[in-house]
Simulated scan of single mutants.
Amino acid sequence: MTREQRTTDTAVCPAKPKNPIIGYIHSTESFGAVDGPGVRFIVFMQGCRMRCRYCHNPETWALTGGTPRTAEDVLAQALKYKSYWKNGGGITISGGEALLQIDFVIELFRLAKEKGINTALDTSGNPFTRSEPFFHKFQRLCAVTDLFILDIKEINDIKHRDLTGQTNVNILDMARYLSDTGKDMWIRHVLVPGITTNTDDLKGLAEFLKTLKTVKRTEILPYHKLGVPEWERLGIPYTLKDTEPPTTEEIETAESILGIHKNK
């Protein structure tokens, strides 16, 4: 058997670890209705390296903290709500940034797939790299993930760095990899007036999405201020105080450029 064959076999059938893997959980939601198909149990992981200026939950940024739990424990909690998972529902792991705890995500999704549960990962893609050991783990993750919900903050890398503190080069590379390997994606874009509403940038995002073969849905998420009290509680300066949510016209323009068609 070649090394390549061994790698493929491992990706298809992720091995069960010898010792329990601990994930650090910020919170859970029992009846999520927007983070994947159907009704879903959502696990919010602790930790994120991006510093999005509009983040509605900066409490998840810290790489320490959260409640330590095993994948078996989280799955047992999720299964209490399985009877509500109609129309393709299941489990979604979100964040923070779940890929920072990729071993835990792999294990929880592996256990979920053993029970025939639909799995979705809501991610910004920031930790993605084709370097090892992450890339091999990501291949294993793909084998047990039905849907990737990828939040592309901004297509222009310079503006992306200003908005999030991080580059988008590896994020776009992740989208290409998922497309090339046949993994279903939903794409999300937060619309922030004066920051992510630029027509040329939206057209650039639209052109990029056209190169992807597995995008099943594209969504505009209008900017809101619901997270401002959390910034104030944590003592973090909020730089978008004077920014208002997008107008209906701005939303419709962005949806038109990105080819999003909604029933009126």
Rank of each mutant, 00 (worst) to 15 (best):
F109N: 02
K262E: 12
W61C: 00
N263Y: 12
E154Q: 15
C52Y: 03
F41H: 02
G194M: 11
P58W: 00
P229C: 03
K80F: 13
R51E: 02
Y24L: 09
C52F: 04
A143I: 01
K82Q: 13
L212P: 11
I220P: 06
T70I: 11
I236M: 11
L178A: 05
I195Q: 14
D122C: 06
P133Y: 02
S30K: 14
Q5V: 05
P193E: 04
N198H: 11
L111Y: 01
K262G: 05
T243K: 06
K262T: 09
V144M: 01
E132M: 07
G65C: 05
L100I: 09
I236K: 06
K16E: 14
V169G: 08
R49Q: 15
N118R: 10
V144G: 01
L150G: 05
I195S: 08
K115L: 11
K115R: 15
T248I: 08
D173R: 12
K86Q: 12
R6E: 13
D35V: 03
T197P: 09
Q139S: 07
N156Q: 12
V144A: 01
L178R: 05
D162H: 05
R40A: 03
F128L: 05
T92P: 07
G116D: 10
E72N: 12
I195K: 12
W85A: 01
R53G: 00
N126L: 14
R40Y: 06
E244D: 13
G89F: 10
T214K: 14
K183E: 08
E250D: 12
S131Q: 14
P14F: 11
L75W: 02
F148S: 00
H261W: 10
I21G: 04
G88C: 06
G90D: 04
R6K: 15
E107W: 03
N57C: 10
Q101H: 08
K18L: 15
D151V: 01
R140T: 10
R53L: 13
S27K: 08
H56Q: 14
F31T: 10
D9N: 10
I149N: 00
D103S: 12
R176D: 09
W231I: 09
K115S: 09
I22K: 09
F128A: 03
H26E: 13
G194V: 07
T199A: 07
C13S: 15
R130N: 06
T196A: 10
